[in-house]
Write a protein that binds this DNA or RNA. Structure first.
Length: 572
RNA sequence: CGGGGCGUGGCGCAGUCCGGUAGCGCGCCUGCUUUGGGAGCAGGAAGCCGGGGGUUCGAAUCCCUCCGCCCCGACCA
């Protein structure tokens, strides 16, 4: 394509609204323009890149036997009412009414519709397994769209759904997707981590998220480089750092001491010279209407999702101040488990075996010394702690690292929830009606692009992987008014096209500096510069990511470049 | 929804306190010069100062109100 005829509105300065790197560059490089909060127009370059990502996704999905279909983005409310998600999704679901007053919604995922199709058509186990997928816009009325294409209200999702007769079939479908996702993200040039994910308080089974480590990410992953252990923060199980000082010896019973005005662990610890690790942090919650006490080591944080899993419900909220006073006779800041009989007590596993700790006395401005779990109070132990830097891996004993990441994909063993809700049944080989078991799997295409930019950029712009860059190379004549250079550039352009290279020809009547800056901004992986050296029959071939540049003979540049592009891996 | 910030040519900003002819840099258009890292000179176009209402002789500026956008929080594939 000839740049002079394209619409690539680059900006010297980033619009003030953009904060994260990928957002700034997407705007500056003329990839996108924002229509409204969470809604973006994809201009030529973004669309080209997204199409390449889409092609990679399609190839890998087809390769595992998935069949591409397409369903409407608008769904009748009844389907969502049947699955229960009409209520569950609350304000996240875009809802609308048609002219007859019928309720509709915009699809955020398609479990209902896919299951509806299956329910209407699948009759026999012989028709299973099935893998159906599509690539289409999804809508979520996000509370707070942000960070450019990271969190938006309309995005492109590859979503697939599998139907199997039994657990083993689902496992196989899941494994196929796991493999396909790894190949997809590898081909897109991303550094990614598949992590075990939390599968929800209500009975989901296995689930993995595909995380792209990046500063702009909104999720956290825990990773142990030594053992290869990795999990989402919600799910990660690690060994806590040892307490700073050993627990005091002795078998003394709990003994109150005055802690005037000291409420936080930090304040009490400083007051009596003890480390935070010697304290018991006491939280009062309400689970399904009933009070619940959660205990943690003083320096640890509660993981809400782990707590939900431990108590078997996601209906958990912090207790109000008046409830705490009523139940325990003291205010937050002086709470503890000793003598508490009117609520369940759940203690984090890191408290098990500890002795002579410090806890609140349930009397304002007093704490207790010599509190020993199991002796001075009864509690159920469970892992309810959020993993953190400084923890060690259970298996290897090596340290773990906590990293920010972007979730680009999620695979999920759904079970029979939707099949049951929508009445999907087939006959098994014994002629008996059974409910197929489902899986669902998603990839956010814009997040693949965003992640690639976050991972591959410098202060001058993007440096996209060759597989998903809008063009593989750019041919830049330094001076188009110089007839020799212009002709040579034209020759190179045609030669590259003949070689099957996806090439952008910067034939604009601009000075060299402007063209170089633009090419670097928009992130084209290779550049062929046609300048003065053409007098010796040579051009320069430079690589965006490394900045390396080599002289190449004019007649060889096409084949050299093709080899270098192929060396970068399979293309879209 | 709670907290914070911002809406002024395409982009970045000043002007707003303290009312008095709307400015700067970049970009854009024309011409000449220049041409391997965002050129120089000259000339030019482009703004209901987010919308509505009010105060005033006079409002970008003061008051009321609505809208939009960004950030933090709660929430969430």
């Amino acid at each position: 394509m000839r740049w002079s005829r394209l619409f690539i509105p680059t900006l010297r300065e980033a619009p003030a609204d953009a904060e994260v790197v990928s957002h700034k560059f997407l705007l500056r490089a003329g990839y996108v323009r924002q229509l409204a909060a969470g809604f973006y127009c994809y201009l030529y370059l973004a669309k080209r890149s997204l199409l390449k990502i889409e092609r990679i996704v399609r190839e890998e999905m087809d390769a595992i036997g998935a069949q591409e279909i397409y369903t409407p983005e608008v769904h009748p409310a009844e389907l969502w009412q049947k699955s229960g998600r009409w209520e569950v999704m609350g304000d996240d679901l875009f809802r609308l009414k048609d002219r007859w007053g019928r309720s509709l919604c915009l699809g955020m995922t398609e479990e209902e519709v896919m299951t509806w199709i299956a329910q209407g058509e699948l009759r026999s186990y012989k028709q299973l397994p099935q893998i159906w997928y599509q690539i289409q816009p999804k809508f979520r009325d996000e509370l707070r769209p942000k960070s450019g294409l990271m969190r938006v209200r309309r995005f492109t999702m590859k979503d697939s759904y599998t139907f199997d007769i039994d657990r083993a079939g689902l496992d196989a479908a899941y494994d196929k997707h796991y493999g396909a996702y790894c190949r997809i993200f590898n081909r897109c040039g991303l550094e990614f981590l598949p992590v075990e994910a939390h599968s929800g308080a209500m009975g989901g089974s296995e689930s993995h998220e595909f995380m792209v480590p990046a500063e702009a990410g909104e999720d956290w992953v825990i990773e142990c480089a030594a053992s290869g252990y990795r999990a989402s923060l919600e799910k990660a199980v690690t060994r806590a750092r040892e307490p700073e000082t050993p627990d005091p010896e002795g078998t003394g019973s709990p003994e109150a001491f005055h802690t005037p005005g000291r409420k936080t662990i930090e304040e009490v610890a400083e007051f009596d010279g003890s480390p935070a690790t010697a304290h018991i942090k006491t939280l009062v919650l309400v689970a399904q209407g009933k009070p619940l006490m959660a205990l943690l080591r003083g320096d640890h944080s509660l993981s809400e999702t782990k707590l939900q899993t431990a108590v078997g419900t996601d209906d958990v909220r912090p207790a109000h101040a008046h409830e705490i006073g009523e139940w325990l006779g003291a205010a937050a800041g002086s709470l503890g488990p000793v003598g508490v009989a009117n609520m369940r007590i759940l203690a984090d596993a890191a408290l098990e075996g500890r002795r002579n700790m410090i806890a609140g006395a349930n009397k304002d401005n007093y704490h207790l010394r010599n509190v020993t779990p199991g002796r001075d109070f009864e509690a159920r132990f469970a892992d309810i702690r959020e993993a953190e830097d400084g923890d060690t891996d259970i298996a290897s004993g090596e340290p773990v690292r906590r990293r920010k990441a972007i979730e680009v994909g999620h695979i999920f063993k759904l079970g029979r929830k939707y099949a049951e809700a929508l009445g999907l049944r087939v006959l098994d080989k014994n002629g008996k009606e059974v409910t197929p078991i489902m899986g669902s799997y998603g990839i956010g295409l814009e997040r693949v692009l965003t992640g690639a930019i976050e991972q591959n950029h410098d202060d001058r712009g993007m440096a996209l992987p060759v597989s998903i860059a809008p063009f593989e190379t750019v041919v830049t004549p330094v001076n188009v008014k110089n007839e020799e250079q212009r002709k040579a550039a034209e020759t190179v352009y045609q030669a590259l096209r003949n070689e099957g290279v996806d090439v952008l020809y910067d034939d604009r009547l601009e000075r060299a500096g402007v063209k170089f800056k633009d090419a670097e901004l928009i992130g084209i992986p290779f550049r062929v510069t046609v300048g003065k050296r053409i007098a010796d029959g040579a051009v320069d071939l430079s690589e965006r990511a490394t900045g390396e540049s080599v002289g190449v003979k004019l007649e060889e540049v096409a084949s050299v470049l093709r080899r270098r592009i192929e060396a970068a891996g399979p293309r879209a």
